[in-house]
Protein backbone atom coordinates (compact mmCIF):
# COMPACT_ATOMS: atom_id res chain seq x y z
CA UNK A 1 0.00 0.00 0.00
CA UNK A 2 1.65 3.12 -1.13
CA UNK A 3 -1.14 5.55 -0.52
CA UNK A 4 -3.18 5.80 2.67
CA UNK A 5 -6.83 4.77 2.67
CA UNK A 6 -7.75 8.00 4.37
CA UNK A 7 -5.77 11.15 4.30
CA UNK A 8 -6.94 14.14 6.29
CA UNK A 9 -5.16 17.42 5.64
CA UNK A 10 -5.63 20.72 7.48
CA UNK A 11 -9.16 19.81 8.53
CA UNK A 12 -10.69 22.83 10.22
CA UNK A 13 -14.29 23.05 11.35
CA UNK A 14 -16.15 26.03 12.75
CA UNK A 15 -19.34 25.83 14.75
CA UNK A 16 -21.62 28.82 14.73
CA UNK A 17 -23.44 29.21 18.00
CA UNK A 18 -25.70 31.99 19.19
CA UNK A 19 -22.90 33.29 21.40
CA UNK A 20 -20.40 33.28 18.58
CA UNK A 21 -18.13 31.14 16.46
CA UNK A 22 -16.16 28.25 17.87
CA UNK A 23 -13.28 26.67 15.99
CA UNK A 24 -13.91 23.10 17.12
CA UNK A 25 -11.36 21.35 14.92
CA UNK A 26 -8.12 23.18 14.10
CA UNK A 27 -5.87 22.18 11.26
CA UNK A 28 -5.96 18.45 11.91
CA UNK A 29 -3.94 16.20 9.58
CA UNK A 30 -3.32 12.47 9.71
CA UNK A 31 -3.04 9.44 7.43
CA UNK A 32 -4.62 6.05 7.94
CA UNK A 33 -3.59 2.92 6.04
CA UNK A 34 -5.78 -0.05 5.27
CA UNK A 35 -6.14 -2.51 8.14
CA UNK A 36 -4.67 -0.07 10.67
CA UNK A 37 -6.22 1.63 13.65
CA UNK A 38 -5.70 5.20 14.72
CA UNK A 39 -6.77 6.12 18.21
CA UNK A 40 -7.94 9.66 18.80
CA UNK A 41 -7.71 10.52 22.47
CA UNK A 42 -8.79 13.57 24.40
CA UNK A 43 -11.07 14.91 27.08
CA UNK A 44 -14.72 15.58 26.33
CA UNK A 45 -15.18 18.74 24.33
CA UNK A 46 -11.78 18.57 22.65
CA UNK A 47 -13.38 18.24 19.21
CA UNK A 48 -13.02 14.48 18.64
CA UNK A 49 -16.67 13.96 17.78
CA UNK A 50 -16.80 16.95 15.46
CA UNK A 51 -13.65 15.61 13.78
CA UNK A 52 -15.36 12.25 13.11
CA UNK A 53 -18.48 13.89 11.79
CA UNK A 54 -16.40 16.25 9.64
CA UNK A 55 -14.72 13.31 7.91
CA UNK A 56 -18.07 11.98 6.69
CA UNK A 57 -19.60 15.47 6.43
CA UNK A 58 -22.31 14.57 8.92
CA UNK A 59 -22.27 17.93 10.62
CA UNK A 60 -25.34 19.89 11.65
CA UNK A 61 -26.28 22.93 9.59
CA UNK A 62 -24.60 25.35 12.00
CA UNK A 63 -21.18 23.73 11.53
CA UNK A 64 -18.98 24.62 8.64
CA UNK A 65 -15.85 22.95 7.25
CA UNK A 66 -13.30 25.46 6.00
CA UNK A 67 -12.18 25.47 2.37
CA UNK A 68 -8.55 24.61 3.04
CA UNK A 69 -9.52 21.27 4.58
CA UNK A 70 -8.85 18.22 2.45
CA UNK A 71 -10.20 14.75 2.99
CA UNK A 72 -8.97 12.11 0.58
CA UNK A 73 -10.66 8.76 0.90
CA UNK A 74 -9.51 5.82 -1.17
CA UNK A 75 -7.50 8.10 -3.46
CA UNK A 76 -10.40 10.45 -4.08
CA UNK A 77 -10.99 13.87 -2.60
CA UNK A 78 -14.43 14.11 -1.04
CA UNK A 79 -14.38 17.89 -0.87
CA UNK A 80 -16.54 18.55 -3.87
CA UNK A 81 -18.67 15.45 -3.96
CA UNK A 82 -22.42 15.77 -4.37
CA UNK A 83 -24.68 14.57 -1.59
CA UNK A 84 -25.45 11.47 -3.65
CA UNK A 85 -21.78 10.55 -4.09
CA UNK A 86 -21.19 11.24 -0.41
CA UNK A 87 -24.02 8.88 0.49
CA UNK A 88 -22.30 6.19 -1.56
CA UNK A 89 -19.14 6.63 0.52
CA UNK A 90 -21.02 6.87 3.81
CA UNK A 91 -22.89 3.67 3.27
CA UNK A 92 -20.32 1.50 1.53
CA UNK A 93 -16.88 3.02 1.96
CA UNK A 94 -16.90 4.15 5.54
CA UNK A 95 -19.29 3.35 8.36
CA UNK A 96 -19.70 4.84 11.78
CA UNK A 97 -20.77 3.65 15.20
CA UNK A 98 -21.76 5.97 17.98
CA UNK A 99 -21.38 6.34 21.68
CA UNK A 100 -24.89 5.70 22.89
CA UNK A 101 -26.34 2.53 21.35
CA UNK A 102 -29.82 3.27 22.73
CA UNK A 103 -30.25 6.61 21.08
CA UNK A 104 -28.50 5.66 17.86
CA UNK A 105 -31.05 3.04 16.91
CA UNK A 106 -34.45 4.17 15.71
CA UNK A 107 -36.88 3.34 18.56
CA UNK A 108 -39.89 2.73 16.31
CA UNK A 109 -38.22 0.57 13.68
CA UNK A 110 -37.58 -3.14 13.89
CA UNK A 111 -33.96 -4.29 14.21
CA UNK A 112 -34.23 -6.31 10.99
CA UNK A 113 -35.22 -3.30 8.96
CA UNK A 114 -32.49 -1.14 10.44
CA UNK A 115 -29.89 -3.70 9.40
CA UNK A 116 -31.30 -4.37 5.94
CA UNK A 117 -31.95 -0.84 4.78
CA UNK A 118 -28.38 -0.21 3.64
CA UNK A 119 -28.38 -3.59 1.88
CA UNK A 120 -31.57 -2.69 0.09
CA UNK A 121 -30.48 0.82 -0.79
CA UNK A 122 -26.76 0.49 -1.55
CA UNK A 123 -26.45 -3.10 -2.71
CA UNK A 124 -29.91 -3.18 -4.31
CA UNK A 125 -30.63 -6.51 -2.68
CA UNK A 126 -34.08 -8.03 -2.59
CA UNK A 127 -36.03 -8.13 0.67
CA UNK A 128 -35.62 -11.88 1.27
CA UNK A 129 -31.87 -12.30 0.79
CA UNK A 130 -31.30 -9.04 2.65
CA UNK A 131 -33.08 -10.40 5.71
CA UNK A 132 -31.05 -13.59 5.40
CA UNK A 133 -27.87 -11.56 5.27
CA UNK A 134 -29.02 -9.47 8.23
CA UNK A 135 -29.32 -12.65 10.25
CA UNK A 136 -25.79 -13.65 9.20
CA UNK A 137 -24.48 -10.24 10.20
CA UNK A 138 -26.16 -10.40 13.60
CA UNK A 139 -24.64 -13.85 14.07
CA UNK A 140 -21.24 -12.51 13.07
CA UNK A 141 -21.39 -9.86 15.78
CA UNK A 142 -22.21 -12.52 18.35
CA UNK A 143 -25.96 -12.25 18.67
CA UNK A 144 -27.31 -15.66 19.62
CA UNK A 145 -30.80 -15.87 18.12
CA UNK A 146 -30.80 -13.52 15.13
CA UNK A 147 -34.03 -14.73 13.52
CA UNK A 148 -35.86 -13.69 16.66
CA UNK A 149 -33.99 -10.43 17.13
CA UNK A 150 -34.80 -9.03 13.70
CA UNK A 151 -38.45 -8.73 14.68
CA UNK A 152 -37.71 -6.87 17.89
CA UNK A 153 -37.47 -3.17 18.67
CA UNK A 154 -34.33 -1.58 20.16
CA UNK A 155 -35.86 -1.07 23.61
CA UNK A 156 -36.24 -4.84 23.93
CA UNK A 157 -32.45 -5.31 23.77
CA UNK A 158 -29.74 -4.71 26.38
CA UNK A 159 -27.11 -2.02 25.89
CA UNK A 160 -24.42 -4.46 24.77
CA UNK A 161 -26.75 -6.14 22.29
CA UNK A 162 -27.76 -2.79 20.87
CA UNK A 163 -24.14 -1.85 20.27
CA UNK A 164 -23.64 -5.22 18.56
CA UNK A 165 -26.61 -4.41 16.35
CA UNK A 166 -25.07 -1.01 15.58
CA UNK A 167 -21.83 -2.77 14.60
CA UNK A 168 -23.74 -5.21 12.41
CA UNK A 169 -25.40 -2.26 10.69
CA UNK A 170 -22.03 -0.59 10.17
CA UNK A 171 -20.52 -3.73 8.68
CA UNK A 172 -23.47 -4.53 6.42
CA UNK A 173 -21.96 -3.14 3.23
CA UNK A 174 -18.39 -4.21 4.06
CA UNK A 175 -16.85 -0.78 4.58
CA UNK A 176 -13.10 -0.20 4.26
CA UNK A 177 -13.12 2.23 7.15
CA UNK A 178 -14.94 2.08 10.46
CA UNK A 179 -15.23 5.21 12.57
CA UNK A 180 -16.02 4.26 16.15
CA UNK A 181 -16.93 7.31 18.23
CA UNK A 182 -16.57 6.25 21.87
CA UNK A 183 -18.13 2.87 21.06
CA UNK A 184 -18.01 1.52 24.60
CA UNK A 185 -18.37 4.56 26.83
CA UNK A 186 -22.04 3.96 27.57
CA UNK A 187 -21.56 0.26 28.34
CA UNK A 188 -20.70 -1.82 31.40
CA UNK A 189 -17.02 -2.58 31.86
CA UNK A 190 -17.38 -6.30 31.10
CA UNK A 191 -19.39 -5.58 27.99
CA UNK A 192 -16.81 -2.97 26.93
CA UNK A 193 -14.10 -5.57 26.60
CA UNK A 194 -16.38 -7.91 24.65
CA UNK A 195 -17.30 -5.19 22.18
CA UNK A 196 -13.68 -4.12 21.72
CA UNK A 197 -12.58 -7.72 21.19
CA UNK A 198 -15.35 -8.11 18.65
CA UNK A 199 -14.22 -4.98 16.82
CA UNK A 200 -10.60 -6.24 16.83
CA UNK A 201 -11.67 -9.58 15.49
CA UNK A 202 -13.84 -8.10 12.74
CA UNK A 203 -11.14 -5.64 11.77
CA UNK A 204 -8.58 -8.35 11.21
CA UNK A 205 -11.09 -10.59 9.47
CA UNK A 206 -12.16 -7.88 7.04
CA UNK A 207 -8.90 -5.92 6.83
CA UNK A 208 -10.68 -2.70 7.78
CA UNK A 209 -9.11 0.52 8.85
CA UNK A 210 -10.50 2.00 12.03
CA UNK A 211 -10.63 5.35 13.74
CA UNK A 212 -11.16 4.67 17.41
CA UNK A 213 -12.21 7.75 19.31
CA UNK A 214 -12.00 7.59 23.07
CA UNK A 215 -11.28 9.61 26.18
CA UNK A 216 -9.62 6.55 27.69
CA UNK A 217 -5.89 6.56 26.94
CA UNK A 218 -5.45 3.03 28.25
CA UNK A 219 -8.06 1.71 25.85
CA UNK A 220 -6.48 3.47 22.87
CA UNK A 221 -2.99 2.31 23.89
CA UNK A 222 -3.86 -1.36 23.66
CA UNK A 223 -6.15 -1.24 20.63
CA UNK A 224 -4.61 1.31 18.27
CA UNK A 225 -1.53 1.25 16.05
CA UNK A 226 -1.13 4.99 16.18
CA UNK A 227 -2.46 7.52 18.62
CA UNK A 228 -3.32 11.15 18.07
CA UNK A 229 -3.86 13.16 21.23
CA UNK A 230 -6.29 16.03 20.79
CA UNK A 231 -6.53 19.12 22.92
CA UNK A 232 -8.54 22.27 22.22
CA UNK A 233 -9.44 21.09 18.72
CA UNK A 234 -5.85 20.42 17.71
CA UNK A 235 -3.68 17.33 17.50
CA UNK A 236 -1.01 18.02 20.11
CA UNK A 237 0.88 14.75 19.85
CA UNK A 238 0.84 12.01 17.25
CA UNK A 239 2.90 8.82 17.30
CA UNK A 240 2.78 5.02 17.14
CA UNK A 241 1.08 3.74 20.28
CA UNK A 242 4.07 2.06 21.94
CA UNK A 243 6.32 5.01 21.27
CA UNK A 244 3.87 7.44 22.72
CA UNK A 245 3.31 5.33 25.79
CA UNK A 246 7.02 4.88 26.38
CA UNK A 247 8.12 8.38 25.64
CA UNK A 248 5.39 11.06 25.76
CA UNK A 249 6.78 14.46 24.81
CA UNK A 250 3.83 16.70 25.49
CA UNK A 251 3.04 17.28 29.20
CA UNK A 252 -0.67 16.79 28.45
CA UNK A 253 -0.05 13.30 27.05
CA UNK A 254 2.00 12.50 30.09
CA UNK A 255 -0.83 13.64 32.32
CA UNK A 256 -3.30 11.47 30.41
CA UNK A 257 -1.05 8.45 30.79
CA UNK A 258 -0.69 9.12 34.50
CA UNK A 259 -4.43 9.29 34.82
CA UNK A 260 -4.79 5.61 33.82
CA UNK A 261 -5.43 3.67 37.04
CA UNK A 262 -3.08 0.70 37.41
CA UNK A 263 -3.93 -2.64 38.90
CA UNK A 264 -0.59 -2.86 40.65
CA UNK A 265 -1.31 0.35 42.56
CA UNK A 266 -2.02 -0.34 46.26
CA UNK A 267 -5.62 0.22 47.38
CA UNK A 268 -6.65 3.82 48.13
CA UNK A 269 -4.07 5.28 45.78
CA UNK A 270 -5.61 8.62 44.86
CA UNK A 271 -6.57 8.80 41.18
CA UNK A 272 -4.40 11.11 39.17
CA UNK A 273 -6.28 13.85 37.42
CA UNK A 274 -5.44 16.89 35.42
CA UNK A 275 -6.04 20.09 37.28
CA UNK A 276 -7.99 22.93 35.73
CA UNK A 277 -10.68 23.03 33.10
CA UNK A 278 -10.49 22.17 29.39
CA UNK A 279 -10.10 25.40 27.43
CA UNK A 280 -13.09 27.57 26.60
CA UNK A 281 -12.91 27.45 22.83
CA UNK A 282 -15.01 30.60 22.53
CA UNK A 283 -12.10 32.72 23.67
CA UNK A 284 -9.12 32.80 21.31
CA UNK A 285 -5.85 32.09 23.10
CA UNK A 286 -2.55 33.28 21.72
CA UNK A 287 -0.28 30.58 23.13
CA UNK A 288 -0.47 26.84 23.64
CA UNK A 289 -4.00 26.20 24.88
CA UNK A 290 -2.76 23.71 27.49
CA UNK A 291 -0.49 26.35 29.03
CA UNK A 292 -2.99 27.49 31.72
CA UNK A 293 -2.98 23.93 33.11
CA UNK A 294 0.64 23.05 32.45
CA UNK A 295 3.19 23.12 35.26
CA UNK A 296 6.06 23.53 32.79
CA UNK A 297 4.54 26.46 30.92
CA UNK A 298 6.75 29.49 30.35
CA UNK A 299 6.27 32.87 28.70
CA UNK A 300 6.64 31.46 25.23
CA UNK A 301 3.94 28.88 25.93
CA UNK A 302 1.48 31.61 26.86
CA UNK A 303 2.29 34.00 24.02
CA UNK A 304 3.02 31.87 21.02
CA UNK A 305 1.26 28.86 19.63
CA UNK A 306 3.55 25.81 19.25
CA UNK A 307 3.40 23.97 15.92
CA UNK A 308 3.20 20.23 15.43
CA UNK A 309 6.84 19.21 14.78
CA UNK A 310 8.99 16.12 15.02
CA UNK A 311 12.44 16.66 16.40
CA UNK A 312 13.91 13.18 16.55
CA UNK A 313 12.01 10.66 14.45
CA UNK A 314 9.73 10.83 11.46
CA UNK A 315 6.76 9.23 13.10
CA UNK A 316 6.58 11.07 16.41
CA UNK A 317 5.32 14.63 16.27
CA UNK A 318 4.21 16.97 19.03
CA UNK A 319 3.29 20.59 19.60
CA UNK A 320 5.16 21.85 22.63
CA UNK A 321 7.76 24.50 23.49
CA UNK A 322 9.08 22.58 26.49
CA UNK A 323 8.84 18.91 25.51
CA UNK A 324 9.52 16.25 28.08
CA UNK A 325 12.23 13.59 27.98
CA UNK A 326 14.48 14.89 25.21
CA UNK A 327 16.50 11.98 23.93
CA UNK A 328 20.03 13.20 23.95
Amino acid sequence: MSIPLLSVKHLTTDIHLEQGKVRAVRDVSFDLWQGKTIGIVGESGCGKSILCKSILKLLPAYAHILEKSQIIFNGRSINNLTEKELNKIRGQGAAMIFQDPLSSLNPVMKIGHQVTETLLYHLKMEEEPALKKAEDLLKAVGIANPSQRIDQYPHQLSGGLRQRVAIAIALACEPKLLIADEPTTALDVTVQAEILDLLDHLQIQRNMAMILVTHDFGLAACRADEIAVMYGGKIVEYAPAEKLLANPRMPYTKALINAIPRLEDPPHTPLQFIEGQPPNMMIPYAGCCFAPRCSLAGHQCRDQEPLLINDDTDDHSFACWNPLGKIS
Binding site: K53, L56, L58, E83, K84, L86, N87, K88, I89, R90, G91, Q92, A95, M96, F98, D100, S103, S104, L105, N106, P107, V108, M109, E117, T118, Y121, H122, A166, I169
Partner: peptide, 25 residues
Protein backbone atom coordinates in the same frame (compact mmCIF):
# COMPACT_ATOMS: atom_id res chain seq x y z
CA UNK B 1 -31.71 12.64 17.59
CA UNK B 2 -28.74 10.35 17.36
CA UNK B 3 -30.58 7.76 15.30
CA UNK B 4 -31.05 10.33 12.57
CA UNK B 5 -27.30 10.96 12.57
CA UNK B 6 -26.82 7.20 12.45
CA UNK B 7 -29.22 6.95 9.50
CA UNK B 8 -27.30 9.70 7.73
CA UNK B 9 -24.05 7.88 8.42
CA UNK B 10 -25.55 4.88 6.65
CA UNK B 11 -25.62 6.93 3.48
CA UNK B 12 -29.39 6.92 3.15
CA UNK B 13 -30.90 9.69 1.05
CA UNK B 14 -32.52 12.63 2.85
CA UNK B 15 -36.14 12.04 1.73
CA UNK B 16 -35.91 8.43 2.88
CA UNK B 17 -34.55 9.50 6.28
CA UNK B 18 -37.21 12.19 6.67
CA UNK B 19 -40.18 10.04 5.79
CA UNK B 20 -39.07 6.59 6.90
CA UNK B 21 -36.98 7.36 9.99
CA UNK B 22 -38.18 10.70 11.31
CA UNK B 23 -41.86 10.94 10.45
CA UNK B 24 -43.28 8.25 12.69
CA UNK B 25 -41.46 9.24 15.86
Amino acid sequence: ENYILMARSKGLPAPYILFRHALQP
